[in-house]
Design a protein around this nucleic acid. Structure first.
Length: 866
DNA sequence: CGCTATGTGG
DNA sequence: AGCAATCACATAGCGG
């Protein structure tokens, strides 16, 4: 392994961390923000750089050898605030807890310790990274030493390499001391030469090379004042250079061999984090114990696998789409031995196991169930899904593969990309490597299961896994596998009609523009509109003019071409994304099989891919017609859609117990009208259509967590006006205001917010100094319990539906979920009973303080089910 | 292949 | 002062 040394300037980074974070303190009243920032930094460095050697250097005391050269060295510095001073012992304790050495030396600064060790490392050609907040250390940069400077905050970092320095100044790092000699350094009270700043100093050094050379060419210097100053202050320049020079032969008593990092336990860290009340750090630590990897013991005889206890199962396919792609082997383990077999011609004993009562752990139950269905196996008794567990523990951890999830627990195993390659070069490896890989996957799942189950238990999320997400994944597997019938002929007809209209619009646009161009290129369109036609450009994007809808709408009256472009855009979108796009997705069975991603959306919602069937047009009639192509799979059956009415706002009413909001739902009053009544303080009959429209937009904002800016955009009003709206809203619904305040405090206290069924979302930015980041975090904290609880409820309804429908004679099939609605296909003769059945299940999935209301419709196609 | 701009839904 | 502004997915354009 290549060795890598990290040297940290402890004092400088403590200052940085202190000023970068708000003043936090623990219950004992000790301030902790600098310690916290330091922790974030250490974690980041260890994760990003994987060092083998590590030292944190501190300044020893007030005076150093530099003070004997210049008594006023570092004079005029502000006193360290006591809130920071009290944190230094804790920072040393923190460094100890990470099992990292720290060091200080009387009469020397941290810089000199760092310089000396960097020199030792350079001599051994050891790669070295110095991390600091002060620019002083740039002089130490060379081919094996880089200096990282923290920019804003603690973990935003600039990398200084020799090339980088040369790019900045035109000369290498060795001349930084000359630079300081001439220009001085305000923060260290190094005088330099009066009248010389960075610009002049760089110019002089580019010409003469060093301070000494500049002094020996005083007569050649152009500029009278400059020459005069250099002559008068030449001694100061030389002294300043000396002061700025870092000592690389300090008499340190700690050397490279003493600062090796070794794998140690986390006990001291946990203890300290408890004392400091770093809850989020603790969460991450305690939920992420390191797991030792088990050896691979592959067997060719399934009989050797013990089926008495829990087993783990891994099956996968080549590439993402498990509904169609080639199925790869299956691996089963009991935690000791591993059996791997090709998935064609499964032996009877294996099938019996898969369909039997044996308890199985998996990574991605949905994919597992679908792949096995394709092999004609009806898998039973999956009891744990490591992938779902990972998502529930922390939805922000992107789920890639088993390896990535295992890495969260310190296990390093080959990942998908290493085995299969990526992009066009993807390939299935030869059998032995493939079997080994599958064996490792199964064993890793087995090892992760115990740990992650305990983590879920600690979070009180085991029920959420066992009774909601895991059963749901099997319901979704059924939906994906079944698919929804799509009438290709209907799409072809639309395609022809659209083509004619698009061609007409295209020609009209060319005529109005005076020549042909690519209307689909925002770049070309921008040139036409804002240069050739001279229309006023309202908004810019990073790359040029914005031609987005809201911009074009503002120009509608300015030129005929605008309406034509808007119409063209609308139809072109329908044509390419839906009419043509959907046709490409129709499988041989005449159906579209979307896949639902159950572990992506941070709120707990599902998403849908290849194709996305959760964004089929509905708002505009033109687009809505696409839905005519979605039909039932057999004659005499219909499409039946059941949707929750205002589920998010009902959840909000439930959580806040706001009187007037609950009253609206309890008495069936239209919620937007009710909102308008409260916000505008008018009687029901005095609510105008426009007042209701505005109230609706505010409710929309509440549900989706948009900002005042977002609301101002959707209402076409000014931002202050939008902010006032939100304020009025919160005054009208005091409990909502109370909830919003409370949930932000909760996020600050716990580091996360929760839904009704204990789904979690961590809100790391809730204490951010950056206004935007914090604002966004706050809206996330407010919005996630609302949207997430709504997601919980419909998921619960799906699981309950699936369980209950099996006890009935209904032949209906659940086809799709679109966030607040479920789409079924149902034999016409059972519609009436089925409708009541579904309504009952959905409305009583969870009992709230307000009733849940489900509305439903049915018809020949999804279009008619409105 | 990856980024940008755009637009669809809830 | 200026930044950025709900999220997930898909398409087309465009440059490397």
């Amino acid at each position: 392994m290549t060795e890598k040394l990290i040297l940290i300037d402890g004092n400088s980074l403590a200052f940085r961390a202190f000023y970068a974070l708000p003043l936090l303190s623990n219950r004992a009243g000790i301030h902790t923000n600098a310690v916290y920032g330091f922790t974030l930094l250490l974690d980041k460095i260890i994760k990003d750089e994987a060092p083998t050697h590590f030292l944190v250097a501190f300044d020893a005391g007030k005076t150093t050898f530099r003070h004997s050269t210049f008594g006023d060295y570092k004079g005029g510095r502000q006193k360290t605030p006591p809130e920071l001073s009290e944190q230094f012992p804790l920072i040393r304790k923190l460094v100890d807890a990470y099992h990292i050495k720290h060091y200080e030396l009387d009469n020397y600064e941290a810089d000199d310790i760092i310089g000396t060790l960097a020199r030792e490392a350079t001599e051994k050609k050891m790669k070295t990274i110095i991390i600091t907040g002060d620019r002083d250390l740039t002089q130490l940069v060379n081919d094996s030493v880089s200096v990282y400077y923290t920019k804003k905050g603690v973990t935003d970092i600039d990398h200084y390499t020799p090339e980088f320095v040369r790019e900045q100044y035109g000369f290498g790092p060795e001349k930084i001391i000359d630079l300081k000699g001439l220009m001085g350094d305000k923060s260290d009270n190094i005088p330099g030469v009066p009248g010389i700043g960075e610009k002049t100093a760089v110019k002089l050094l580019l010409e003469y090379g060093t301070v000494e050379e500049v002094i020996s060419h005083l007569d050649d210097i152009k500029g009278k004042k400059l020459q005069e100053n250099l002559t008068t202050y030449q001694a100061d320049a030389l002294m300043s250079k000396q002061l700025a020079t870092i000592e690389v032969h300090a008499p340190i008593e700690i050397h490279l061999d003493d600062i090796k990092l070794s794998a140690e336990n986390n006990d001291k860290k946990i203890e300290l984090f408890k004392e400091l009340e770093f809850k989020q750090m603790l969460d991450h630590m305690e939920t992420a114990p390191v797991i030792e990897q088990k050896a691979l013991e592959l067997t060719e005889r399934f009989e050797e696998i013990s089926l008495a206890g829990p087993t783990s199962l891994f099956i996968d396919c080549f590439k993402d789409n498990y509904l169609v792609n080639e199925i790869l082997p299956i691996a089963v383990t009991d935690g000791e031995k591993i059996f791997v077999t090709s998935s064609d011609n499964l032996q009877d004993s294996l099938i019996a196991y898969l369909e039997g009562a044996e308890q199985k752990n998996v990574f991605d139950a949905k994919k597992t169930a679908v792949l096995l269905k394709r092999l004609d196996v009806d898998v039973k008794n999956i009891r744990f899904d490591v992938m779902l567990a990972s998502y529930l523990l922390d939805p922000s951890k992107t789920i890639v593969d088993v390896a990535e999830t295992a890495a969260l627990h310190g296990m390093v195993i080959p990942n998908n990309e290493q085995i299969f390659g990526k992009g066009a070069k993807m390939a299935i490896p030869e059998t032995e490597a493939l079997f080994d890989y599958f064996g490792r996957q199964a064993m890793t799942i087995h090892q992760l299961t115990d740990v992650m189950k305990r983590e879920l238990e600690n979070n009180e999320q085991l029920k959420l896994h066992d009774e909601l997400e895991l059963p749901l994944s099997l319901v979704l597997a059924g939906m994906e596998y079944r698919g929804i019938t799509v009438d290709r002929q209907a799409l072809i007809e639309m395609q022809g009609e659209l083509k004619t209209r698009i061609d007409e619009l295209m020609n009209r646009i060319y005529t109005l523009a005076g020549h042909e161009f690519n209307i689909n290129s925002p770049k070309q369109l921008g040139v036409i509109l804002f240069e050739e036609l001279g229309l006023p450009a309202a908004k810019k994007t990073k790359t040029g003019y914005s031609t987005a809808v809201d911009v074009l709408e503002g120009l509608r009256d300015k030129h005929e071409i605008i309406q034509a472009i808007l119409d063209y855009r609308q139809l072109a979108k329908l044509q390419s994304t839906y009419v043509e796009g959907l046709q490409k997705m129709i499988a041989e069975d005449g159906k579209i099989h979307t896949r639902f991603n159950q572990v992506l959306a941070q709120t707990g919602r599902l998403s849908s891919v290849e194709p996305n069937l959760q964004n089929i047009p509905i708002r505009l009639e033109e687009g809505r017609k696409i839905r005519k192509a979605f039909t039932a799979s057999q004659p005499g059956w219909v499409i039946f859609a059941a949707d929750y009415s205002q589920i998010e706002l009902r959840v909000l009413a439930h959580i806040t117990e706001d009187r007037s909001m609950m009253e609206a739902f309890n008495h069936g009053i239209d919620i937007h009208t009710k909102t308008a009544m409260e916000v505008f303080d008018v009687e029901k009959d005095d609510v105008t259509a426009d007042m209701r429209r505005q109230a609706k937009a505010v409710n929309f904002g509440i549900v989706y967590g948009i900002s005042d800016y977002g609301l101002s955009q959707s209402l076409g009003i000014s931002r202050p006006a939008a902010a006032r709206f939100i304020e009025d809203y919160l005054t009208s619904f005091p409990n909502v205001k109370q909830y919003m305040d409370d949930i932000i405090l909760e996020a600050k206290r716990d580091g996360y917010v929760s839904t009704l069924l204990n789904r979690r979302r961590y809100i790391p930015d809730i204490n951010a100094r950056n206004f935007n980041a914090r604002g966004f975090a706050e809206r996330t904290a407010m919005n996630t319990p609302i949207q997430g609880s709504a997601a919980d409820i419909i998921k619960l309804a799906m699981v309950n539906y699936d369980r209950e429908v099996q006890k009935t004679d209904f032949k209906a099939n659940l086809l799709l979920q679109v966030h607040d609605e479920l789409i079924f296909e149902v034999p016409e003769e059972e519609i009436e009973a089925f409708s009541l059945f579904v309504k009952d299940i959905m409305e009583h999935a969870l009992e709230l303080n307000v009733p849940l209301l489900v509305e439903s419709n049915y018809g020949q196609s999804w279009y008619e089910a409105k």
